[in-house]
Every structure is written in C-alpha cells, then in structure tokens.
Design a protein around this nucleic acid. Structure first.
Length: 522
RNA sequence: GGCGAAGUAGCUCAGCUGGUUAGAGCGGUGGAAUCAUAAUCCAUAGGUCGGGGGUUCAAGUCCCUCCUUCGCUACCA
C-alpha cells in the first residue's frame, strides 16, 4: 500500500446549514477517495469547516449568540451531513481548533521570514453597514453625490492598518508554474480564467484585519487577525500535522487534488500556491473546480425559495440514490441541474430497472434453481467469453481510467453499458428456458452472470458504497476481491466449491416515486 | 467594455488533433419474452449540428461576423 493519495474537499463556511452544493462536493470528493482506496492507493481524505471571518461573527451577533457557540452548532451540521451521506473522510477539521491556529501562525511566520509580509495601510471605500470594502468601479452615486455600495449602503474612504502579502512578487512564478503543470488547474475553462487573471497583474494582498477579532491572531500583532483565506487554506496542511513533522505530513503532502467549487478557484490557484511558495512548501498537484447545482436550471437562493436540503433528499430518495444521481447526471466540472423528476427517472432507470433488476433476476434464478448454491461452470461458450471480456474490460480498464480522470459520470456511463450487455445476455441465453432443456448450460450462464454482477458491484462501490456492499455481502464475495486489482481474479470457483449459498435475494434498489405535490402555494 | 465558455434529435447531453449514411440515455411508436423490482430485450423514431459568410477534395469539428445564454474581470467567504 504505497503511493499515497491526498484529497480534500473545500472546507465549508458554516454561516448557514449545509445545502445541496455542500452535499454534492462532499459526495464527489468521497467517490474519488473511495475509488483511489479500491485502486490500491493509501488515501487521506480531509474535509471540515472554515469558521473564522467577518460573516460568522456578524451572523452570531445577529442572533445574539457567542460566535464560538454558533460555530460549534453549525459545524456539527456539516459533520452530521458527512455521516449521513457516507462520506469517508479521514479527518473533519475545524479552523477553530488549537492545532490549526498553531499551524496558521507557523505558516505566517514562514511568509514573514521570507520577507513577504509588510505592515501598511489598507485604504478604500468602506461600508460600515456591510463591513466590507468596495472597489471604486462598483460604486454608484446616490442623492447629493453620496457614494453607495452595490447594496445601496453609504461608503466612506477608510484607512485601516493591515499586513500585506507580496503577492505581486509571485506573478511570474505562478505563470511559470501553470505553464509547467498543465494539469494543475482543471477543468481548462477555470485554468484560462486564472491565467488571464494573473497575466493581468497581481496586487499585494491584505492579509490581516483589525476590524474584528474572530480569527487567528497574527503573531506579534495581537490586534490583528489573519485574513480568513490564509487561515482556511492552511487547513489542508494543518489537517495532516503541519507544522509538526508527523508521519501523515511526510506521507501525504503535497496534496494530490483539492476539490472545490468554481467560485473559489482563485483562492486555491493563485493565493494558495503563492503562500506555499513563500513558505517554501511543495504545491498541490491539482485543483479541480466543479460546477454548481441548479434547481430546474435556476440558481438556488434563499430569495427564490428553491434551496434544497440535502438531508431531506437523502431521506426521501435514499443516500445512494442521491449519490448516484449527482455523479451520473452531472458531468464533473460543469454545472448540473437537479429536479425530483430527474432523480426519480434516472435512479429508476439505471439502478432499479437495469442493474437492480439484473441482480435480482439472476440471484433469484440461482436461489430457486440451484438451491442457492453457486452453479458450476461447464465450459464457457463464445457468448459467455464475450460478456466476460466486455465486463472485465469495463471494470478493470475503462471505469478506473475514467475515475482516475475524475470523470465520474463517464465511469458510470461505461458501467451502464456493461449492465445493458448483461441484460441483453440474460434475454438471449434465457436461462429459465435452459432449465429444462440444458441444465448444465443454465448453470454456466448463471455463473457467468454472477461473476459479471459481482464485478459491476465492485466497480460501483465508490458511488453507492452502501448498496454495493450489501449486494456483495449477499453474493458472498470475499473482502479481498472487492477492489479493482482483484475483481477479475479467479475467485468464483473457490467460492462456489466452498459451498457458499445465497439467501433469498433482497431488492436493493427500490423504485422511487415522485413525491406528492406540495399543497397550495402561499 | 475586456477575456472566456456554451448554443447538436421532444428532454438531458457525447462527439479528441476536420474525413464513410451525425451518436447515447430518457420519452414516444411497433414487436419479443415472462426468470425478475409491470422490470428486460430487439427494432424504430426523417435533428438544415443557433443565423449568415468563408477556407478545404472534405466542417458539427478551422476562420470571420451576427444573435442568445452563461462565467471571470481580486481583498464577504
């Protein structure tokens, strides 16, 4: 088990409860992590919550609560979401943890030691009401020449003491890095945006705040807290031990991939690598900016009232159904659309009808006609060979290649084609008819199907771990076979000859029904 | 405004470096089968590949232009 694979999702900003976008990212990241484990890599998967910053502080104050208290509560919802959705994270990190503060201060000191931090003044148009600075170009002019923020609140020219990071110094190194590492930013559209942005020139970055104190204290400037992003990004290294020289740190850094939303690509592809360069640390190998989930093609927002609670969806349709839908229907990297009809249609067609029914009809035939004992193989026909080859090729080559490329929807498309081939094979061979005409042939056909179904279940584990495991359990497939390296090994005959007997098969993928329409609007 | 992405069958989308009759799934239609979660399999549905122009022996696939939608254009995260 060498070849470490370190993957992170973004750490969520918990000033609200988790929404479907958080669930989507967690599920996608989890599927990749699970795939790599089954692919023989030693995996570390980190997720968590990013709890500092102005907004958390404001939200808590608005509720009349202690910020820390609110953070504890909100973070727990995200942790709970991970548990519910079968997210196999190795570490759930909170930026409020002591070790994380220590790590953030350590990286700060490294930037400082490298001469990249200097104290200056941040000047700009500041809205007291929004507690935010705005660019001149964003402002509008109200009555009497009063300058207004995009939110329509008054702004005034404000000067604040701030530490700056010499981001400008890294313009060239970053561009060189992008050029030398074409896979660093994916998909390409995000890379273009980033390159153009950096080519446009980088200004030094204000990396401390004095206007609030909910954050990591700047070493030596106790009235400053660190810019939230500097602290948040540090999670990726503090999670595995930094600044301590731990075994995990040595094994897993630099990260294999950071999975993030397309809205925070810049922080991960400009600021983060610049910070790391300054700190003298290796850079992550890849940053992948996935798309957004739209509700019937529209952005989800509180004002539109179309925000979807992922817990409710999991409750309604099942965790694996939700996971399958999101990863099959949405091309990873692009925006995707969600609707109850779409999930019901997709899950019924693929999981219930095609794959679930394939397993059910095959296992039922074995249960009824072979007393549950796995049938012997009496020499394969060309049809059997063709199917075994098609499924074997999909499971051992094509599907892992797609997963490795983070193309989960394509992996599943390939998977479905193999499922279709199995169904076509069942119909053509008609083992129920062979029962009377050629029992031995029936046994071979059922054995062939059993092998294929097991392989398909093994391959789909990263997507629907719960159901796949249940099916493999029903089928008695040994643990050490349940990975990409061994799925195609010679495990069937030993299992059959060992006298394994299946119980009466239980359907694992129930057909979904469209939930009844909500009554009356208003 | 600048830069970029996208516009392909009713729906959701594949189509890499240009090359035989433009593909898949879902839906629709017609058959077959009855082992199975009324699931499955086979066949099929006549889309000027956003409009126009151009390059080429050959363009959905390259160039120009127009239309439409979307993203980025730094200090909330």
């Amino acid at each position: 088990m060498s070849d470490p694979f370190y993957i992170t999702s973004a750490i969520a900003y918990p000033n609200g409860k988790p929404h479907i976008g958080h669930a989507y990212e967690a599920i996608a990241t989890d599927a990749i992590a699970r795939f790599q484990r089954l692919n023989g890599r030693e995996v570390c998967f980190v997720t968590g919550t990013d709890e500092h910053g102005l907004k958390m502080d404001q939200t808590a104050r608005g509720l009349g609560r202690e910020t820390r208290d609110l953070a504890d509560e909100m973070s727990s919802y995200f942790k709970q979401m991970c548990a519910t959705l079968d997210i196999s994270a190795d570490h759930f990190c909170r930026t409020t943890a002591d070790h994380h503060h220590k790590a953030s201060q350590a990286i700060w000191k490294r930037l400082e030691a490298n001469g990249d931090l200097y104290l200056d003044r941040y000047e700009g148009w500041y809205s007291v009401r929004d507690e935010a600075y705005y660019d001149e170009a964003e402002l509008t002019e109200g009555e009497g020449g009063q300058k207004l923020s995009p939110q329509g609140t008054p702004v005034e020219w404000t000067v604040e003491e701030s530490w700056f990071f010499r981001l400008s110094k890294y313009e060239k190194p970053l561009l060189d890095f992008y050029a030398e590492n074409p896979e660093f930013i994916r998909p390409d559209s995000r890379k273009n945006e980033t390159v153009k942005f950096v080519e446009g020139g980088l200004k030094d970055l204000s990396v401390s705040r004095t206007s609030f104190d909910w954050g990591v204290k700047v070493p030596g400037s106790e009235n400053h807290v660190m810019y939230v992003w500097l602290d948040a990004l540090t999670t990726y290294i503090s999670a595995i031990g930094f600044p301590d020289d731990t075994e995990e740190w040595r094994k897993f850094w630099p990260a294999s991939v950071h999975i993030i939303g397309k809205d925070i690509v810049r922080f991960h592809t400009v600021y983060w690598p610049a910070f790391l360069m300054s700190a003298g640390l290796p850079l992550p190998k890849m940053v992948f900016g996935h798309g957004f989930l739209l509700s019937r093609g529209e952005k989800m927002s509180k004002s539109l009232g179309n925000v979807v609670d992922p817990m409710a969806l999991a409750e309604l349709f099942g965790v694996d159904a939700l996971r399958y839908f999101l990863l099959r229907e949405v091309s990873f990297g692009q925006d995707g659309s969600y609707s109850p009809e779409a999930i019901v249609t997709r899950v019924n067609a693929d999981l219930a009808n095609s794959f679930g029914n394939l397993a059910q009809r095959t296992l039922s035939l074995i249960y009824k006609n072979c007393e549950g004992y796995l049938p012997a193989i009496h020499g394969h026909h060309a049809d059997d060979q063709a199917l075994l080859e098609l499924v074997g090729n999909a499971v051992s080559k094509q599907i892992p290649a797609h997963f490795d490329d983070l193309a989960m929807s394509q992996a599943l498309e390939t998977w479905m084609q193999a499922v279709f081939a199995c169904n076509a094979y069942v119909d053509m061979q008609a083992p129920w008819a062979l029962k009377k005409t050629d029992p031995q042939r029936m046994e071979t056909v059922l054995a062939t199907l059993f092998i294929c179904i097991a392989q398909l279940a093994i391959a789909v584990q990263p997507i629907i771990p719960g159901s796949a495991t249940k099916l493999l359990d029903q089928m008695g497939v040994p643990e050490d076979v349940r990975n990409f390296a061994n799925a195609g090994s010679h495990w069937y005959s030993p299992l059959a000859e060992g006298g394994f007997q299946i119980a009466q098969p239980q359907g694992l993928f129930p057909r979904l029904e469209l939930p009844a329409e909500e009554e009356g609007g208003a």
